[in-house]
Design a protein around this nucleic acid. Structure first.
Lengths: 362, 362
DNA sequence: CTGTTAGCGCGTTCAA
DNA sequence: TTGAACGCGCTAACAG
């Protein structure tokens, strides 16, 4: 066996052996063409499946490609073709079932079209969100999907809109899953209406004194759900002036902390509404730890109806959102809409699902 | 406002207004250069942060880039530079907490290096796994991470190895999280040892009659855990000849179905080992539905110690795997190893965590 | 139907 | 330090 070093150009070493092909770096189309004895153009045509290929040649190119283990350079293809086949997806956290369910829906739709997805998680950091949008722009993603509640942070919103305008101007399609505030396509869960209906149902169960475990004040999803919940209570004749509202993180830990606080304060609420399910799960754990029984001592309701809810006892009352479908819908909006079209908004209904965690009061 | 149509080339329309720039498609580096009155090369230098830049120029380029909202074309950069900044990640399912935890770890490591991740989910379909490896190769990912148990499917393994050899030959780095069978770097959870220790602990709790809810027969993770479990029982003097083993899907539904079957058959086992936590969760639901109490009527243990376990009652005995760290470690192996180096294997210990779902027998 | 040629957007060498 | 020119791997006009 020869120990001949390869030429510094990193190209193939010419040897007299049969087909001993040592090389560094991927196989090139030009090599396939040469190996098949045709021009680069014809090789490109048969492998790109474009059109018109002579049968003596066609087969030889295919054979050469297979033998050489040729894999086209998607990046170069995208540059030459002027359009990439990747979709960007920005979420807060893969570990959060809310986001992973949506991601699942997006990916199903994306993979169906033989595209690839860039996934980035902001961990609720607005600066990272902005960075990722830039990164996605840079990679010329043909569609960009941003999910996660918008906030009242005007400065951030403006920068984001600015960035998205640049993206759109360059021919990119974007869709958000949350509130319709960015001038892009939008899949908008009916947070307010859903929470309103939940409020009404809970009052109908006989509850009058409520506490709400809310997210950060600037988070629109939390805000909308709180507003809707208030409306629901009011619609059923409950005075919401003294509604107890605690603000914390939009996470399991947030819910845990707030519920503990509720217990410590000796809240007299008979029913607690956590504005999302992960917070509700945290609250459930805190109540359990404090010896407060759900629903005997206090009723508990969440929002989103995430998958892990299936495995908790008592089963948790929630407001169902078709998460996977929302993701899929957003992907459709971004992928199947003609550029230069006015952006569309898809409203998604939320449905109250009463379960064991909310009891009927005597 | 003029309604002048853009030229068919889609380039900028020359107008006399101040800086009215209508164009289609992204802003180009050449435009930034022109706008700054410098050559393309200098513009490239300052924006790529390479070196030596005159201060009259440097500033003007930066200003022009900002004004024009220039975003470099990462694809073209990758082609010109000969190296991309994307990492490929192949998992089975984003919705499965096992995989999303690992994905979280991978992404943390990847984002720390200012890289991007391509995420693909196979839904346990080996053909899709192979397709995705090709796709990732095609996109010239600088690192590829494949997670999910290997199988005994020789044909598939060979094709996969073949594909990965091509990837490696082209200079790519790959790491698997599962078994070390692909000739790549590997992060290998000690499934067998973990299950063995679990078996011993359960016997020490007084159990003698066990049932195992296993995954598909060809799945190595399931097989290793079953083997280890057997060894653990045997080590404590339990005869495993008549160990009851049921095979099903490696999913929550699989666990649910098998547990229901166990109940229907009137199993006399006092302790059930589900080879992974999602199966255990499904089993728990099935037992609950059948009126079989855990752990009073039967003890139950799982494997992986996934996050959602926190919220189930009774708390589930499991074998802890540091999922996020495993993902991070795999990313490190693939990203921080010099190409042409022999592939490394990192063994990851699994730790038994006894909780309420497994009771001590009288 | 095929090969030649000119791009795609950018990095980088080479002189100047 | 700067700019002209070439190269990256591939697609798509254009002729033949």
């Amino acid at each position: 066996m020869t120990t001949a070093r390869e030429s510094s150009t990193g190209r193939r070493t010419d040897q007299d052996g049969p087909t001993v092909v040592r090389r560094s770096g991927p196989v090139l189309l030009s090599e396939v063409a040469a190996h098949a004895g045709v021009s680069l153009a014809t090789a490109s045509r048969v492998l790109s499946g474009s059109r018109s290929v002579g049968e003596p040649h066609r087969g030889r190119v295919l054979a050469a490609a297979q033998e050489l283990r040729y894999t086209p350079n998607a990046q170069a293809q995208a540059v030459a073709r002027g359009a990439s086949n990747v979709v960007g997806l920005i979420i807060h956290d893969v570990l959060d079932p809310y986001f992973s369910s949506i991601a699942g829906g997006v990916m199903r739709e994306v993979e169906e079209r033989e595209l690839v997805v860039f996934l980035a998680s902001t961990h609720s950091d607005v600066d990272r969100e902005l960075e990722f949008v830039q990164t996605m722009r840079s990679h010329r993603v043909r569609a960009l999907i941003i999910c996660g509640s918008r906030t009242t942070d005007r400065a951030h919103n403006e920068r984001l809109v600015h960035e998205l305008e640049g993206y759109a101007a360059a021919g990119g399609q974007a869709a958000v899953i949350s509130q319709d505030r960015l001038g892009t396509h939008a899949v908008v869960p009916q947070n307010r209406a859903g929470a309103r209906e939940l409020g009404r149902e809970l009052v109908r169960l006989g509850h009058r004194r409520f506490a709400v475990l809310a997210g950060p004040r600037g988070l629109l999803a939390s805000r909308d759900r709180l507003t809707g919940f208030r409306e629901g209570l009011a619609a059923e004749g409950v005075d919401t002036a003294d509604l107890q509202v605690l603000h914390g993180d939009f996470t399991r830990e947030g819910g845990e902390r707030l519920a503990a606080q509720l217990v410590a304060e000796g809240s007299t609420a008979t029913c607690v509404f956590a504005v999302n399910d992960v917070m509700a799960l945290g609250a459930l754990a805190a109540f359990r730890a404090a010896g407060v029984r759900v629903p005997e001592d206090v009723s508990l309701a969440g929002f989103d109806d995430i998958a892990p809810l299936r495995d908790v006892v008592p089963s948790l009352t929630s407001v169902r959102l078709p998460l996977a479908e929302m993701g899929a819908r957003a992907a459709q909006l971004a992928l199947d809409t003609e550029p230069q079209t006015t952006s569309q908004t898809v409203r998604v209904d939320a449905e109250v699902v009463l379960r064991d965690s909310t009891r009927r009061l005597a």
